[in-house]
Simulated assay, not measured.
Amino acid sequence: MPSRRRYLAAVGAAGVPLAGCSYIHGSPSADEPPEAGVDDPPEPRSDLHGADGEWSSFGCNASNARAVGDGRAPVDGVAERWRVEVAGSAYREPVAADGRVYHCFTDLSAYDADDGSELWRHPDVETTPVVRDGVVYAGAEGRLLALDAETGDTAWELTLSENESVGVPALFPGEGLYVPVGEAVYKIDPETNGVEWSRDAFGRVLGPPAYVSQMGCAFATEAGYVYLLGHDGTGFGRWSLPAVPEAPLTADVDALYVNCLDGATYGIDMERSPRLDIDWHAETGWASAGIAVHQFVYTTGTNGLRAIDPDSGDSLWEYDTGDWRWTAPALGRDTLFVGGGRLYALDPTPGSGTPDQPAVRFEKSFHGRVGPGPVLDDGTVYVIAQTGERTYHLLALE
């Protein structure tokens, strides 16, 4: 019997609306990229909670799946619209929502998406934010901040710890904010700013937590554990990993994926969760910036780009993007965008190129490495790239 994940993939491929990210199976060839949906862009995907058609959080949506509904994503080449200089050690990717682009290094900056002009800067923010309905939620030293997206002014703040930094928050629409703080996760009501519950974990939480279907949230810790909690904080499962996780995990309909410092990516099938076993692992190298999932699992990092079968962990194809681990795949308009040695746009359909590699839609080179990013929003690719011997820029490409 096929898994629920396989069933949803088959339904999507058959053309029944799973709104948002365009379907990967049966996509046009690299010579015939998908038509733009300027007048009728796809709706956010109904199977990805928190998908709002924008790249408004780490991993794009509440499941950290790095898939966006953007019918205008550029698939046949890009030109630069603007650039803003950033530090070479800026390893957080931007997020974009409502005509603004946000990037956090030593503080949080908001830029106009049209021309790159700086709109405001907040000195206390220490994390990638999540943006929703005109509010920017972000972590600071011991505090969760809610900022006005237009001005950067503090709407409210909530002290959660005296000695721990607040990690990257996740917002599950209709459920609330899930916030990692040291070795604990807090659930916050964004309307009242109140703590609904908190749960301790073993090891520092690698945030943000990921939404898991209707079950609740999942997260990994630096002690090598994966936890699954219900929306009321009830513990549903705990898995022990053989190595320390390298990045926050990604959730699919009934599965979890996490990359570890032993150079492997691990898959957990929650349909078989009573076993509390790891179902498979794939030798992917370090994938420090996250994992993309839509029908298949995509990783990139020290071993280049991989497409992995989500049920078996078998490699479907590989592509040489170099060994830069601070980039991650982004899915939109039947195209896989990724950095590394350059910016790549690939047709992820198995067999689209050679049997062992995807077809290339386009490539764009800069002076050096590409990433953090790319992320996609409103027909634009945002990415950090090395633009000179000692210069790095956040770029808007269209």
Rank of each mutant, 00 (worst) to 15 (best):
V383A: 09
D262L: 13
S312C: 08
Y344N: 09
E283C: 11
L177W: 13
I278K: 02
R45S: 15
V360G: 07
Q214A: 08
H49V: 11
Y102K: 15
G116K: 04
R390A: 10
A65E: 02
E85Y: 04
Y392A: 11
G379I: 00
L108R: 14
L229T: 10
E164V: 07
L147R: 14
Y382K: 03
T265V: 02
A87N: 10
F202I: 07
W197F: 15
R272E: 02
T300W: 00
G194I: 01
V38K: 13
L147C: 13
G304K: 05
G379R: 04
T354K: 04
A110G: 09
V375S: 08
G304F: 06
L229D: 14
S165E: 15
P358Q: 11
E35R: 12
G351R: 04
Y227Q: 12
A251V: 00
A9R: 06
C21N: 05
P248V: 01
R342L: 06
S315Q: 05
G373N: 06
L158E: 11
G15S: 10
E157L: 12
R4N: 15
A90S: 15
G37H: 09
V168W: 08
L276T: 00
E32K: 14
D114Q: 09
A110C: 09
P42C: 03
G69P: 03
R66H: 02
E43G: 06
A218H: 02
D114A: 15
S89A: 07
D252F: 00
A210W: 00
P123T: 12
T159F: 05
D39E: 06
N61M: 01
R369A: 10
E85Q: 14
E271V: 01
L18R: 08
P310N: 14
F236Y: 15
P372S: 07
D40W: 08
A13H: 05
F58K: 07
A247Q: 00
R92D: 11
W55S: 14
A396V: 02
S63W: 00
S63K: 03
L343E: 07
F337I: 06
G26M: 02
P248K: 01
P190G: 10
V205R: 10
T354L: 04
A13E: 10
A251I: 01
A9S: 12
R100E: 12
E150G: 12
T321P: 05
D254E: 14
T300G: 08
D320T: 03
A396R: 04
L144F: 13
G368P: 06
P2T: 05
R132Y: 11
V226E: 00
G230E: 08
V253G: 02
T354Y: 01
E183S: 14
D52N: 15
A36C: 02
T127S: 13
G216L: 06
W286D: 07
R6W: 11
T387C: 09
S352Y: 04
G379P: 03
R199H: 09
D47M: 07
L144Y: 14
I188L: 06
H122F: 08
L147Q: 15
D98G: 13
V226H: 00
F58P: 01
R333F: 03
I384S: 08
V101E: 12
P372F: 03
N64W: 00
A79W: 07
D115I: 01
T299F: 01
V166C: 10
G77A: 13
S46P: 03
T250V: 04
S352N: 11
